[in-house]
Design a binder for these strands. Structure first.
Lengths: 202, 202
DNA sequence: TACAAAATATGACAAATATCATATCGATAA
DNA sequence: TTATCGATATGATATTTGTCATATTTTGTA
């Protein structure tokens, strides 16, 4: 049943996959690539909720609470998504309690992560926030101390709630202090311990 | 089945109902009263996640993602809770797909609310935050323009991410500007429109 | 009641962060 | 190729917020 209803979609870097306010009519599983979930405020500024990676059900947080997207989703790089019609999923939930328990676990876990993340960011100041994000990319996304940042400095700021200028300034400072190496978008963490310490204490 | 496993509990103001790190072994439905969910950070300071009211499943956000509380829960006033053993609930989810769909909807809705709330607070400055909270109490909790605040100024600060001093200062300012009346913990909103405007623009 | 502790209150000052200005670099499209 | 726009970069300054000190009031409890 699910197999028949499945559709494969490819999005290019920068493409908006779904927009705040639009009706939700599919369940999206991220196969390849990277996406951002974000909300645009009344001043036209974006706040990024999360960055999602392959294996994530990228719109799971919304589909059971509302019929319209509360956040927009944009591809940060070439992204492949597996879409399943939402009605099919909802029928499956009704008929298959194992499936719904798995969804319950998953949705619970995701919301925990988002909230936890928000708390962490909130109690840190600029340096701690940038350190936290650099470590998030190293530990959670790329599993490497050297990586190419998938977002602009502005987007980093939108994720950790600070201005673009202060984000750039803080990165420059980390470079000057030889905590990181930086070549355009390529970051290499030179002093992991120190970064962890900055990320922990704020 | 659920009826037999049900237990009624009463907590007094200030009583800790569950503590971060403790095992979760019941499902809690709030019948009467008011509680706060909060997290204590490494500096020993609390950050309040939400204030819950009768009708809320106060630990729903945690029970399917983890076996231990991620947040503490404390009664803000005399509170009556209906507790059901967690195993009973989990069995029910497995056997009753309508029930699990309802839980899915509910959990989704709650996490949306928490995240939404955090976003709102985050993009405002002190005055906007205090206004937002005063309106939250008026519109959502008490459905009245005059009410007795259920929390201290410190707790208000813990909820809207600012210091106790600035919370107090901002309230005093609102009083001086005749936007609110204040007598101890009793608040009366005198200029609702202006408060809405402050809460909207920041 | 009386005492201690917590909550409220306010001022002065320090620290953190945002804003504005301006420059350079780099990618993209005509 | 060149022009343009967005991204990165950095300094100067303004604004916001936090911190520290200290006083008063309220609350809870012996």
């Amino acid at each position: 049943m699910v197999n028949e209803a499945r559709k494969e979609l490819v999005f290019r870097r920068g493409e908006v996959m779904s927009r705040e306010g639009e009706p939700i009519n599919s369940f999206m599983y991220l196969r390849e690539g990277l996406v951002k979930l974000y909300k645009t405020n009344i001043h036209g500024k974006d706040q990024i909720l999360s960055i999602n990676i392959p294996g994530d059900f990228i719109n799971l947080l919304s589909i059971f609470s509302t019929t319209e997207y509360k956040y927009s989703i944009t591809a940060l790089e070439e992204t492949k998504v597996c879409e399943v019609n939402l009605d099919v999923i909802k029928k499956l939930v009704k008929s298959n309690s194992k499936f719904s328990l798995r969804l319950l676990n998953r949705i619970s876990y995701i919301s925990d992560e988002v909230i936890q993340n928000h708390f962490e960011i909130n109690q840190k100041q600029v340096k701690g926030r940038v350190a936290y994000f650099l470590l998030f990319l190293a530990d959670h996304i790329y599993k490497s101390h050297t990586y190419r940042m998938p977002v602009t400095r502005r987007e980093v700021g939108e994720l950790i709630s600070m201005t673009t200028e202060n984000t750039i300034r803080t990165l420059s400072e980390f470079r000057k202090d030889e905590i990181i190496g930086m070549d355009g978008k390529t970051i290499s963490i030179l002093d992991y311990e120190r970064l962890v310490n900055i990320g922990r204490t704020g």
